[in-house]
Design a protein around this nucleic acid. Structure first.
Lengths: 209, 209
DNA sequence: ATAACTAACTTAACACCGTTAAGTATAATC
DNA sequence: GATTATACTTAACGGTGTTAAGTTAGTTAT
């Protein structure tokens, strides 16, 4: 028993090493620019070994995709204690942007890259953590509505809108499309972006008071 | 003279054919999934011929990038006659989303794809039409501000915010990340998105009256 | 103890990719 | 008619994801 569990543990360890190496390389060079051979070299195994642990490159993608959402949920979890829902909503925005800019390549993987997202969409377990993150946002917005914010608006439509606003900013930044706007200080984009979004939310709120 | 101009014309024609073939393939399969060999096969030339007309694949990208912005400006131009700036702004949002969803792969090229956007950023001529499009938006917002909208906000910050809001929606759709929101009718996304954005703008306006 | 089997890994290969060096055939020029 | 320039192609390089077949060590069965 002990011997077979050790073997199983070792297998799991190698799987973890592959994932770790893949993650580090993806963070450095991005998904497209990281090859199976690169990963193999890093862990000092032959490229084909990786296929004993993962179906294909997309399978590794999926794993890190899930990991990314776990991390995002960690960023969010620390906000659960903020009791005022509107303040929490603004904090979510800030946390989301911080997460995206601190983990650019991971964010890319989660929300921008094309790759195997169509195959991933079928399997519900791949989106579990993603849905949890979105649910946290939706729940916060429901509380806001209960307090009189976003009157006459559907919670998940508001949630989607808020999400897409921050995603818009972040993805333009990550894919380097901000250069057309000269007056935007690239370095302080996170702060400026947060402010803009929260300014918008504030004004929306004032409109219904 | 006639003979050399004919040759020049023929060269230009082939260049155009390459661009046209590339465009069609990009629209069908996306940039990454279209190879130089695919383009060559389509126009019945050898792959290397393409390198006589374009420096590399990124060079073709740049050309279509510029073309995309020209087309976007065509969508915008038809809105110049809308005299009320706030109505025009809302029409711009609608047109932008329509453009993006009608020309998904082209939009991808312009605003999402990583590829050679860093090399493109240096050359100002590549962004000429892009800046014209953004200027149209900024100008409209300046007029809005002159009429009392967006009080105490910087025009190009507002412009960037508006842009990123619509970009957020559109890019989540194009890269298939909308599936987490079950209540969003995928088919009518354009309409729903337009409505959401314009609802937000309306509420922002009411807040300062 | 030896034979058969299994697990973990590697080698070699396939068909593709972007790109380039060298070659060819045709047309223009001297 | 010889040379040179133009327009194009062939063949190759080093890379990619992926797979079929081979190897080597360890486990199990007789």
């Amino acid at each position: 028993m002990t011997i077979s569990t050790r073997k199983e543990r070792q297998k799991e360890e190698l799987r973890g090493k592959i994932l770790q190496a893949a993650k580090e390389l993806f963070m450095q060079k991005g998904f497209e620019d990281t090859s199976i051979r690169n990963i193999a070299e890093k862990i000092e195994y032959s490229p084909t070994t990786i296929y004993l642990y993962f179906k294909d490159k997309d399978d590794i993608f999926c794993e890190l995709h899930k990991e990314g959402f776990k991390l995002l949920n960690q960023y969010f979890r620390s906000l659960a204690h903020v009791s005022d829902p509107f303040e929490r909503l603004k904090a979510i925005n800030k946390a989301y942007i911080t997460f995206a800019l601190e983990n650019g390549e991971l964010y890319d993987l989660m929300f921008i890259i094309r790759s195997p997202i169509n195959s991933i969409a079928k399997d519900d377990s791949d989106w579990e953590e993603g849905k949890r993150a979105f649910a946290f946002l939706t729940e916060t917005i429901k509380e806001c509505i209960a307090k009189g914010y976003f009157e006459n608006m559907q919670p998940d439509i508001v949630a989607f809108t808020v999400w897409s606003m921050v995603h818009g900013i972040v993805s333009l930044e990550i894919r380097n499309r901000c250069s057309v706007v000269e007056s935007l200080n690239q370095k302080d984009l996170a702060r400026q972006a947060s402010e803009m979004i929260n300014e918008i939310l504030d004004r929306m709120h004032k409109s219904v008071q």
